[in-house]
Design a protein around this nucleic acid. Structure first.
Length: 325
DNA sequence: CTGCTAAA
DNA sequence: TTTAGCAGG
């Protein structure tokens, strides 16, 4: 059911870091989670746990992950998911309200058995605690890394920003960036080697499909939001859509049914996104404040972040990302 | 999550 | 060609 099948459909190529330039709209949830899991796996938990037991491995991950961008002259823009996380850190009261309203939404969706709504809500919030959401935003702000708040899926908002020309690539591990219409998507920005570039236009050309048809094919195979039809994989989906034209015709011809198919289709075709954002691609981090925040305020082991901060310092002053140079 | 194998 | 199950990171 997973959407790894999309990998077989997508046109993907390795691209050297040197060839990437400009702004990458990063699916922040995705990116943070990636670093969270590796940090937790390889680092002694005492290095990122406060006295009261709060774990802030995300701070370590951010400090270690950002140099990748800066050293290659790439400006990351972190796009956060909407829902419970789209809260500014002023009013605790409104934060509580928002969190509660989210819980309510999820609760209601569960009661109604609305699988799409459940999947949608869960995909946005999965695994990132409120503390992680908040401290990540605060550290990014100190480092002058732009943050954009998505109304719903960060992935969709990031794709929207690339479509509008405000960013050059979406940065995400998820293949559904393609379904949200991301023209160019970078994967494996967090790994050692070169990233992968997923090209929407090349993908559509290769299969002779429209984006709408690609979405329909993906729904047949199964996405994060729906089950898909058993027995249909990437090959069958593409040929069926090519033969019959669209999702409904395929389902009719096969006598199959997909629950909430229209909702999922709508979710990808016309996602909830906003034009209400702005950011400055020139980055001028306050490294002293960031160091203090991470080590003094949250008690992260200084040795663990030292190298990361050094790399940020060196790359920002040397590459001209700094607006003052 | 990615990769590989066996079985339908 | 698809799926399920298991390996390994």
């Amino acid at each position: 059911m997973g959407n790894a099948a999309l990998r077989d459909i997508a046109v993907i190529e390795d691209i050297p870091f040197e060839e990437i330039e400009g702004v990458v709209a990063v699916d922040a949830h995705n990116w943070l989670y990636r670093y969270l899991t590796t940090t937790v796996k390889w680092t002694d938990s005492g290095k990122y746990t406060t006295a009261d037991g709060t774990e802030v491995a995300n701070l370590l991950g951010i400090v270690q992950g950002l140099p990748k961008f800066f050293e290659h002259d790439i400006t990351p823009v972190m796009v956060f998911d909407g829902g419970p996380s789209d809260l500014k850190d002023d009013e605790i009261e409104s934060r509580r309200e928002q969190r509660r309203s989210y819980e309510d939404q999820l609760e209601t969706a569960r009661e109604e058995g609305d699988a799409v709504a459940i999947a949608q809500l869960e995909s946005r919030t999965q695994r990132l605690t409120p503390t992680i959401q908040e401290t990540s935003r605060e550290l990014l702000e100190l480092l002058d890394v732009p943050v954009v708040e998505a109304p719903a899926e960060g992935e969709a908002q990031a794709a929207h920003m690339v479509k509008r020309g405000d960013a050059d690539y979406v940065g995400s591990e998820d293949y559904d960036a393609l379904l949200f219409g991301s023209p160019l998507t970078l994967r494996q920005l967090t790994s050692k080697g070169d990233p992968e570039l997923m090209d929407l236009e090349a993908t559509l050309d290769h299969h002779g499909l429209t984006l709408e048809q690609l979405i329909d094919a993906a729904i047949l195979i199964g996405t994060d939001f729906n089950e898909g039809v058993s027995g249909i994989g990437p090959k069958t989906a593409i040929s069926a859509i090519t033969e019959h034209g669209d999702l409904w015709s395929v389902l009719e011809a096969r006598g199959d049914h997909i629950e909430y198919g229209d909702r999922v289709r709508q979710l990808f075709r016309d996602p909830d996104v906003t034009d209400e954002y702005e950011f400055d691609a020139a980055i001028d981090p306050d490294l002293e404040a960031a160091r203090t925040y991470v080590t003094d305020e949250w008690g992260v082991d200084a040795g663990e972040v030292e190298r990361g901060f050094e790399r940020i310092e060196e790359s920002v002053t040397q590459t001209g990302l700094d607006r003052w140079t």
